[in-house]
């Protein structure tokens, strides 16, 4: 490797020569990868910090309108106020509880039903049009009906999240199960594997990546829908915090709520990516 790798092409004495020097990536691939990783992580952290600093600078200079767009430092201070008042964790807990319970109920039901429907062509023919129709119904539009049937308590909000997650996971699960190549299942059957063994050792691992993608998408939708529900039919939760703060003309509290909602979405996505990595190591 230390030998001179440069090459000289000399088709003729008068012709120009071109020296090909190995790049840093070629000379030290591990070091290059490490530096590249550091750069990417630095940018991931540095760019938002720079933008927040820019926002703060514009607000301090009076360029940005601060009545409704408070500077980041003011938002941070308000964050502290909400924490010390106990309002913040109460709001986070209320929203997270609704999201977690709704997500669990909706996802588990969708997985079971999705595997059953995905495994049967007849069931798919019978149910897929109905599922497609129900999937496109905006779930927030059915909130008044849920409130009517289940009252103003937690049940209606948890069910709304469950319904939202259910259809996303269901459609992905059906598709992923139905999409498993018959070559794989034929091999299993040729080896005299039982129906259960085929499902457990072949269909499930093959369908898992797409199913998990559906579950990840559903987690984001769960956050969106609960915030919408808390806007109109709750007196706790981050959605309520955002809505009420806007109504009361306290936008810095509203921003605390907005950022927190985003963070919950990011954390949920990160957790599910971790689950994906653990459950589908072959898919990295």
């Amino acid at each position: 490797m230390t030998a001179d790798l440069s090459q000289t092409r000399a088709p003729s004495a008068a012709a120009t020569s071109k020296v090909i020097v190995p790049s840093a990536r070629e000379r030290d691939p591990r070091g290059y990868a490490r530096r590249r990783r550091l750069l990417e992580r630095g940018l991931a952290v540095g760019v938002p910090i720079a933008l927040i600093a820019l926002w703060q600078g514009l607000a301090s200079a009076g360029v940005a309108e601060s009545q409704y767009f408070p500077p980041p430092l003011e938002i941070a201070s308000s964050w502290g106020e909400l924490v010390s008042q106990g309002v913040y964790f109460e709001s986070v807990l209320a929203s997270v509880q609704r999201i977690a319970l709704g997500y669990l109920f909706g996802t588990l039901a969708a997985l079971v039903i999705g595997f059953a429907i995905g495994s049967s062509k007849l069931a798919r023919s019978a149910l897929e049009p109905t599922i497609a129709a129900l999937y496109t119904v905006p779930k927030l539009a059915v909130l008044p009906l849920l409130l009517l049937v289940f009252g103003l308590g937690e049940t209606s909000k948890i069910l709304l999240v469950a319904l939202t997650c259910f259809f996303v996971v269901l459609i992905n699960t059906i598709d992923s199960v139905a999409g498993v190549s018959t070559k794989y299942t034929d091999v299993g059957r040729s080896c005299k594997a039982s129906r259960w063994a085929v499902l457990w050792h072949i269909t499930l691992p093959a369908a898992l990546p797409q199913t998990l993608t559906g579950m990840r998408i559903a987690s984001g939708m769960a956050v969106i829908v609960i915030v919408g529900a808390e806007f109109v039919a709750a007196d706790t939760g981050l959605g309520f915090l955002v809505w009420n703060s806007w109504n009361l003309g306290v936008p810095e509290y509203m921003f605390v709520g907005i950022v927190s909602i985003s963070l919950i979405g990011v954390i949920a996505t990160a957790l599910l990516r971790l689950v994906e990595r653990l459950l589908t190591p072959w898919n990295r």
Partner: peptide
């Protein structure tokens, strides 16, 4: 981390 960065941006 990349997701947080993108979101913040």
């Amino acid at each position: 981390m990349r997701a947080i960065g993108s979101l913040a941006v």
